[in-house]
Design a protein around this nucleic acid. Structure first.
Lengths: 233, 233
DNA sequence: TCGATTGTTTGATCGAAATCAAAGACCGCT
DNA sequence: AGCGGTCTTTGATTTCGATCAAACAATCGA
């Protein structure tokens, strides 16, 4: 890492709040790394050798069953933390959905540094609690929502999460963004098949709630109706 | 709290590892409380005024949609921690599935104590990471598994989690236990209806994999086949 | 002990999403 | 610009679990 004080996620990542000299020590432990779309940085079942902060790009966290069925259990954005500090093997894979830039630490070096810096662990705890809330919200979606509700929920979630990052095409417009996931991945995230995803998106489009100028780009026309849809059939 | 050093979850709860004098301070902040079956201790959407350690009993964590659909997003056992420290309102309810005993703290008192005791926060972080892993494992179940696989997975999960607690009828027999959930709750946990739960349990029974001497009691006869079932149709 | 209430099982039918199948759109490459 | 591959959409059919309905079993209080 060259210089943490110049880092674009400096104020949002878990390292925010560290003192300048602590930041220098941490910076020396990390190295910046670019990963290309599709590349996996943590393997399900493998010893989680690294942890990292996401500087740029979007990644998926996924788990699978032996017969190949895959479920995406998390989507990770800039300033988020990835990997499984402490304990055992990683129960999931982490794979880049777009080209991404990471600030990578070996797990052991990070664990050691963290154990000496309660402020860092506190930040990580808060983030983990938020991630747990999000996971549970998604359990509600997977357990109880219809296909239409799921798609509506996804679009709104993507809008806000990308918005927090300033990742929107137009910085001022939450209602326009590029999906970092293809149809198959949306299916794997929502517990639906690719065909159902496609049909539901087409339906939202023909109902006028959204526009889909191309495969990835989404324009939300009627946020209110989409929000209603997200919560009730 | 009378005396933490006598607490039955003393060695497993997040307070383990605190020094004797720290434990005395923490003990004075908490109070022991018995909650009866069905009683809710944290309300979805409400300000999470309390956090607690579970001393005895089993509780559910649940979220719901405005129209009444409910999803159980977690099941909590003795030595587990409940409530949402730091931040905002609780996004979920916590309700006792059996009579339970809690060691309750006001959230503010706990937050303050925790901020001065990194060791405690570290324990809480590890636990939260484990809870997150479990939530994601459940997302895989909800998103990708068939009804039969879900039931098999639940029975094995219950067997191991109750086993960790020494809650089994026969302490040496992981293959026999009482379900703390009724059929409706099993459905709400697995994303199934009560009828499907009943049918799948009946099927496992007639296939000889399990016995169901009464509503709550489960005997696992063929753990291996049940394990295979849990992971593939 | 009985009747009421609640929880569970079983049966019949329905429907949302999966699966199977094929056409169409988009992208990168030469 | 044209070709080959991948991704997406659309259509036809099937299936698993939901829903509707009713019988059955367990629990509780009087």
């Amino acid at each position: 890492m060259k210089d943490c004080s110049q880092c674009v996620v400096r104020n949002r990542a878990i390292c925010s709040g560290l003192l300048p000299d602590e930041l220098i020590v941490l910076g020396r432990l990390g190295r910046q790394q670019v990963v290309e779309r599709g590349q996996t940085v943590v393997w399900e079942g493998g010893e989680s050798l690294i942890v990292a902060n996401v500087i740029a790009g979007v990644l998926k966290i996924s788990m699978s069953i032996s017969d190949g069925r895959e479920q995406i259990v998390g989507v990770v954005f800039p300033s988020d933390f990835i990997g499984r500090p402490f304990g055992k093997d990683s129960p999931y894979s982490v794979t880049a959905l777009t080209e991404a830039e990471l600030c990578v630490f070996t797990r052991s070096a990070f664990n050691e540094f963290a154990s000496k810096h309660p402020e860092l662990e506190h930040k990580l705890l808060r983030r983990t609690l938020e991630e747990l809330d999000r996971a549970r919200e998604w359990m509600l979606l997977l357990g109880k929502k219809s296909a239409g509700e799921r798609i509506a929920t996804l679009l709104l979630e993507m809008s806000t999460r990308l918005g927090e990052q300033g990742c929107h095409a137009d910085l001022n417009d939450l209602n326009q963004f590029d999906l970092p996931l293809d149809r198959q991945q949306i299916g794997d995230l929502l517990g639906l098949t690719i065909e159902t995803v496609s049909r539901q998106l087409t339906k939202l489009k023909s109902d006028g709630l959204i526009d889909l100028p191309d495969r990835k780009h989404v324009i939300i026309n009627d946020r209110m109706r989409l929000t209603e849809l997200a919560m009730a059939a």
